[in-house]
Design a protein around this nucleic acid. Structure first.
Lengths: 344, 344
DNA sequence: GGCCATAGGGTATACGTATACGCATATTAT
DNA sequence: ATAATATGCGTATACGTATACCCTATGGCC
């Protein structure tokens, strides 16, 4: 209780107590091999007794390495905050864990795409590298990414691995996942398969999923019908609208592959309102396996991404980049979770 | 493209270009009043042209202020990672936003309660203060909190405002919310109301909610039956088990107030399996308003906490504490969202 | 005209660590 | 035995900023 304020101990204090010089303390604690085992042990003991911790600021200033990563998450500038991509949280969990494991701190910041995030973190020596997550204006995104590359900033981003590839990208095997989904729908006898989700190059991940779907269909000698594709962003409302539009067109369809679970959930609402039975009249598959997917009725068949692996891979790739080690681009496998919405 | 690597500009570079000394640059950029308007404008212009940003490490080292907050989130050591409290994400959003607004960075870290998190952040000068979020072994928690207080560490925590109050606590009006829930159940004619959630002082928030429920019941001259209370942690499985135990007891009940939505969802599963009709046989209310709450069937009546307000308040309170400004403890109002599970 | 207050900004230095370099002593090679 | 390493550590200094202190010029006031 009545403990003295005890000014934070410095490496000088330890040096004094150990009868050595301050640099020796630094060397000992950082694991330099040019300090004897006995001296090191003694220094470590004293450090522990004093509850000494290296001053992060001084250390970073001198070494020019912060041992901190920054995670920038881009949110759509919508009023509805719950639209945050639901699997983000799991990824955040594995990213923080991986960072902790490697001795790195994690700075986090939610950003709007139009802000000047691309200058703030590297120049001010807050972090050694940046992880980019989320969506937004894709063209603006690419512009700023180019700027990062120019400045020599180290970064990784989550996204479509098969895109033009500015910088280093880590992502799921969206094409393969789309293919799995398509093959499953074909296997249960569906031929007129609709796709809900932006198929343009403004949303490379959605585009990849559509590509996979088409590939699976063609493999079964079914030609995808462009009239059965509707643009949608990842939200219930957008999915609802897209399905409405599809229904209004009068074009018959017996299955939907939605680019995200939120889109799928919105679409299910529209289908139910139209009096269609799921999955008898229309089978439906989502993407992400958000918690709600197992609560819809019928429960939603969907694609589960490897979020733990994603966090680990993002951090590993970024650290490799920071250390100028070579890093091969990797795609994470995704798995189809079959539930009632495709159970015939 | 072929831009020179251009070493990061320092305040000396600016000083040279502006024809002043380095300290003047520092003063100008930090808004000191002892620098003329003309000089300041000139310095700011040059700084902008050079894309200058203050080196965070040097600044923090010298001023002993990091302008960074640390967010420590305690997760239950369960294998299931999705158990992370669902409203955490919204709170995270508002916390980061509030930090950005105040010019603070946010460090985030997921912790197990048993780790030595209580020494790592303050001593190493990573952050000016700590926000504590989440659950875990409550007794261990209190011990470590006392340690923080002893060391003079600035922190705020999210939790029960009415508890013993080690340090500064910000939280919802859990008692009031429980009272609302109870009053609503009474209003629809229910008298035998069960409570699922730990009612001991190991989980003060849940305890508060139970207290509120009891208060509302007594107000209506209904004596709460302790036999209708079951301990549960915030998970579907736990809720399922608790409801099962309740059913097995044979004690009749016509309503359930669950301490969280996850508990409620698990309980609904158990009730459905028992062939009970919701809400005719048993009305049910949850807590948190997670996205899934509107997808259950029947949709779940629940309590919505003010998560945006929570983030703002946590940050504000912590900053006040850091600046040694007085800070009054505040409770955030919570709102009952009425859905089908209590619609008779 | 002498005095003081004030504005504006320079000088010197501290924050705590990490690293280049040098210098002994101990070890091995020849 | 002597030169060539290697080992273990001290000395000096740099990282980039913020602040205490000091100095000059100007203006107002009596």
């Amino acid at each position: 209780m009545g403990r003295q304020p005890s000014a934070k101990p410095t490496s000088f204090d330890i040096a004094y107590l150990a009868g050595v010089s301050q640099p020796t303390v630094s060397r000992a604690l950082r694991g330099s091999k040019s300090v004897s085992a006995a001296t090191r042990a003694n220094i470590e003991r004293i450090a522990r007794e004093l509850n000494y911790t290296v001053d992060k600021n001084a250390s970073s200033l001198r070494s020019q390495r912060t041992h901190t990563l920054a995670l920038l998450f881009f949110e759509d500038p919508t009023p509805d905050e719950s639209m945050i991509n639901p699997f983000f949280l799991s990824m955040l969990g594995s990213i923080t864990r991986e960072c902790a494991l490697r001795g790195y701190d994690l700075l986090i910041s939610f950003q709007q795409m139009h802000n000047d995030w691309h200058v703030a973190y590297q120049d001010s020596h807050r972090s050694d590298g940046i992880i980019l997550l989320g969506y937004g204006d894709y063209q603006l995104y690419l512009t700023k990414l180019e700027h990062l590359v120019e400045m020599g900033t180290k970064f990784v981003r989550w996204g479509s691995v098969s895109d033009d590839g500015i910088g280093l990208t880590v992502g799921s095997d969206n094409v393969g996942a789309g293919e799995q989904a398509g093959a499953h729908l074909i296997a249960i006898g569906r031929r007129r398969i609709a796709f809900l989700g932006d198929a343009s190059d403004h949303a490379p991940e959605f585009q990849d999923r559509y590509t996979g779907l088409c590939r699976a269909m063609r493999q079964a000698d079914v030609e995808p019908d462009p009239a059965l594709q509707r643009d949608a962003v990842s939200s219930e409302d957008s999915g609802y609208a897209a399905a409405k539009s599809l229904l209004a067109s009068g074009k018959p369809f017996d299955a939907i592959f939605a680019a995200s679970d939120l889109i799928a959930i919105g679409a299910m609402r529209a289908l139910a309102e139209a009096g269609l039975r799921l999955p008898q009249d229309v089978a439906i598959i989502g993407f992400d396996d958000i918690p709600s997917a197992s609560l819809t009725s019928p429960t939603l068949t969907t694609v589960m991404q490897d979020m733990k692996g994603a966090g680990t891979l993002l951090v590993d790739a970024l650290l490799a980049r920071i250390d100028d080690r070579p890093v091969e681009r990797t795609m994470l496998p995704a798995r189809l979770i079959k539930r009632q919405s495709t159970a015939v």
